[in-house]
């Protein structure tokens, strides 16, 4: 594929794995992330492996920055075939009575509004092309909920409903919109909160008996970018070892 993929949150964890996977299959990857140094590292790794990659710094909660990023990518490449909205995070683990309005807004903005803003900018490009794939990241918490993560769960459920609606809007243009919902995944940011004992306990609840790997999730993103999934839209693919079966 000589496609162009824009990946928000592509500098770390799952986003990094998705960037590496897509680049390895010949897709030109643009890593859009707040963390410049980490994004640069991914870019260099892709280039070293013979792939094509760029890094752009962006705060996904800032409409102006996203507009500039998408405009720049279009100017340089003349197309955007794939948009993967992966930037996100749960940030806080606390009861509702302790959660401030500012914290609630932060979680909703990064996890839900960020996807909206990127989709709003990229959709017209894909509509003109009459093709495109948008894949938004949700979470098992988006369907099952989680105590002490009300904002994150609400945002991730929002991503699923947002994506279904956008799939209906963009279907007449041949643009597919889907969601990947990972379960607990072995990324430094998630795993720093888990002691080895807690992780072992947690893994007892997972039918496949292990924590997910970023590569497991990257394979699902790749599938949803590939011709094999041409007739799947508005769907959520749960990659979670069976911990949630909605």
């Amino acid at each position: 594929m000589s496609d162009v993929a824009l990946i928000s949150g592509g500098a770390n964890g799952i986003g990094r794995a998705v960037a590496l996977k897509l680049a390895a299959s010949g897709i030109s990857v643009i890593i859009a992330d707040r963390e410049e140094a980490a994004g640069e590292e991914v870019r260099r790794a892709i280039l070293a492996a013979g792939g094509k990659a760029e890094m752009v710094q962006v705060d996904v909660t800032k409409a102006g920055e996203i507009e500039a990023v998408v405009g720049g990518v279009f100017q340089r490449h003349g197309r955007i075939d794939i948009l993967a909205n992966i930037a996100g995070g749960s940030f806080y683990r606390k009861g509702i009575e302790e959660m401030s309005w500012k914290e609630w807004k932060e979680v909703l903005d990064v996890n839900l509004k960020g996807s909206f803003l990127f989709c709003r900018e990229v959709a017209p490009v894909m509509q003109r092309q009459r093709r495109g794939r948008i894949i938004n990241i949700s979470s098992n918490y988006g369907v099952a909920g989680s105590a002490l993560r009300v904002a994150y769960s609400a945002a991730k459920a929002g991503v699923i409903a947002f994506s279904k609606s956008l799939a209906l809007e963009l279907a007449p243009y041949g643009i597919l919109v889907n969601v990947v919902a990972p379960g607990p995944t072995d990324t430094p940011r998630v795993m720093k909160n888990w002691t080895p004992e807690a992780r072992k306990e947690r893994e007892k609840e997972i039918p496949l008996g292990r924590t997910g790997r970023p590569d497991d999730i990257a394979e699902a993103f790749y599938f949803l970018c590939s011709p094999e999934s041409s007739w799947i839209t508005g769907q959520t693919l749960h990659v979670n070892g069976g911990i949630v079966m909605p």
Partner: peptide
């Protein structure tokens, strides 16, 4: 290999 217990809809939306 990490997907289990799921029902994947292939139905053109």
């Amino acid at each position: 290999s990490y997907i289990t217990g799921q029902a994947l809809n292939v139905n053109c939306g």
